[in-house]
Design a protein around this nucleic acid. Structure first.
Lengths: 217, 217
DNA sequence: GTCTATAGTCTGATAGAC
DNA sequence: GTCTATCAGACTATAGAC
């Protein structure tokens, strides 16, 4: 459903669709596309199964719309990285934005993780075109910063991979994290932010004028 | 099935069970527990559905045994970290071992990722006891190294989380990585190893006797 | 031990009353 | 628009022949 079609819906239709999408996010993120059932979604939003299928033509379509509806929001922090800003501040800001999303939107994170883990049948195209293009641009910015001596020499692509991996880990694998560290969420994410800030600072700061005594393997 | 029961099986039984487990790993890692079907496993190992259920009492049991059978192997690299070794070498070795596993056993990695992503119904107990205990010990080693001034001050738990996240990312989210970087596997993992080696060196090396000009937020 | 046939269950989707 | 009832297909698991 595109923006124009969306506009032509009545108020009640938009409300119901919103309810369904919200419930669907809960259920899909917990169970995945296949193990999620229309019954579970129906219970979660207080509608009946046929009623859901009055608003959406199939289960797959609900899944597709939920995923698609979150995509822009998901990639948004990447666009915020500005060539004009201070390199390390920009990248620290990006990490913090991603970590905040992991804390506040763990379900969305799990939904994407599950999709990619199973081969991204619905998103592969977007990954290889839109996301890739955006990332290419941002890596070019990083390369530029490196060439100007404003940032330690670093592989931009792998830098983004590692920021994604480390920040999303706290949402996607929260069960494991919490099984090992029994802290409350606030403490946990506070620690994570301190750790990751320190890590990026050490990773990205120029060695200034001193020797770093870095051993090469 | 424990080790004693395993021994009492005939040769043909062990062979068939092995075949089934191998096929099950393929199917479960690709589809997850629920979307995997006995038919897919049957096709993958060239047996019939009832024949599989002659060797295993249920689909769930196959899944459980596959997961359980891989557990020891999965945690093994952690045990290799030795208090007696050189701190940075030990931790670099651990990262490299994990990265190698991501390259060579992506299916196993995805199987675990999927299990934890969906709440680790079969593993939560092990995570909170056995894995946690092992990790506590290794974090104590890291704290010891830090207190002796052999390692930069670092939160041991988050260090392990980040090593897991970054190394497993290349297996679990390979679709995304490959959509962005179209390199062959060897190049990709070579790059990843260089990047992660550099990252850990900067993260863990002592600043020696020079100022590091690290900004605190 | 292995197979064919099938029972029994779950679930996505539809028909049709209101 | 919404509901009850129900169909059709997929899937796990079992029965029983060989």
């Amino acid at each position: 459903m595109n923006a124009v079609e969306e506009k032509n819906l009545s108020r009640i239709q938009r409300e119901k669709r919103g309810k369904i999408q919200k419930a669907a996010l809960e259920v899909f993120s917990e169970y995945g596309l296949r193990s999620a059932t229309l019954d579970k979604i129906a219970t979660a939003c207080g509608l009946t199964k046929p009623n859901i299928l009055y608003y959406y033509s199939s289960k797959d379509q609900i899944y597709f719309e939920v995923l698609n509806g979150l995509l822009d929001e998901w990639v948004a922090p990447l666009h915020e990285i500005s060539k004009e800003g201070k390199p390390i501040d920009e990248l620290l800001g990006y990490m913090k934005a991603k970590l905040k999303i992991s804390k506040q939107k763990p379900k969305e994170s799990k939904l994407f993780a599950n999709e990619i883990l199973h081969g991204a049948p619905l998103m592969q195209n977007i990954l290889a075109t839109s996301l890739r293009q955006t990332l290419d641009e941002k890596v070019a910015v990083i390369d530029h910063w490196v060439s100007e001596g404003k940032l330690a020499n670093v592989n931009g692509y792998h830098l983004f991979f590692s920021i994604w991996a480390m920040t999303q880990h706290y949402a996607d694998f929260d069960v494991q994290v919490k099984a090992i560290l029994d802290k409350n969420e606030d403490e946990l994410f506070q620690e994570a932010e301190e750790y990751l800030t320190n890590l990026l600072l050490r990773m990205l700061s120029l060695p200034s004028n001193q020797n770093h005594s870095i051993k090469r393997s």
